[in-house]
Amino acid sequence: MPDWEKLVSDRLAQLALEERERQEVIAELAGHLEEIYEGSRGKGASHDEAIRRALQQVDDWKKLRQEIYVARTKENPMNARTSRLWVPSFVTLAASVITLVAFGRLGLQPGPLGSRPHHEEWSSHLIGGITGGPHAVNEYTVWLMALPLIGALGARLSRRAGGTLREIIISGAFPALAWSTILLIILSFAASLGHGLLEAAIAPMGPIGLVTVLVMIPGACLLLGVLVYYGAAKRWTKSVADA
């Protein structure tokens, strides 16, 4: 059996892609040639004849190299990962921030993410928002209700660009990931400064409460939107395919 990877690698040595991507192309083309070789051998062709048939697949390796390079790099200036992951992620993040600010300006009662009430008010707003108490409708709870739509938007943008399930989920839930990072940075900074800043920052709810309010609950709402959208999109695609 010829070493197809070496054969293709030698012929595509000047393929100017990132090394990992170049190796993937080489492996894929080598696999194709190997299938042709084995198919020919299976039909009774000699070793040399099977190799000849495989190599007939490419008349001009230089031209193929150029075409692959153009196809994988130039046609779409936007990197595939950018369109599947980063653009939907930042759209989701921007939408979540804009809606939070917008709900605050609409005159809704400030919640734990709005203006900074006294410590005891933090918990009453949050508890009210969750349990339906006197502060049930505040910017935070309305914002939480909007988050599934935002998560679904991110999922749709990613899926439309051909994103994998992982990219779709990350795109939809990206704001929660971003806030957890920001929270970590702020708390680390506060801890490094000392003077009781860290304690003051987490005092209203404690570290678990802070993570729950800023990361876990919004993340769950975003994820809900992603999963509902993904399920609906799968069913729709299946019904179109069946039709």
Binding site: L29, L33, Q56, V58, L64, A71, E75, A161, G162, T164
Partner: peptide, 29 residues
């Protein structure tokens, strides 16, 4: 042929029409 197929597949993947993923078959390929 291989030469006509792959540039087209890669272009289509770039446009988001198809998606390629590496998989290992039962034979280990």
């Amino acid at each position: 042929t291989l030469a006509s197929l792959y540039p087209l597949l890669y272009r289509m993947e770039k446009r988001g029409w198809v998606r390629g993923e590496w998989q290992t078959s039962e034979s280990g390929r």
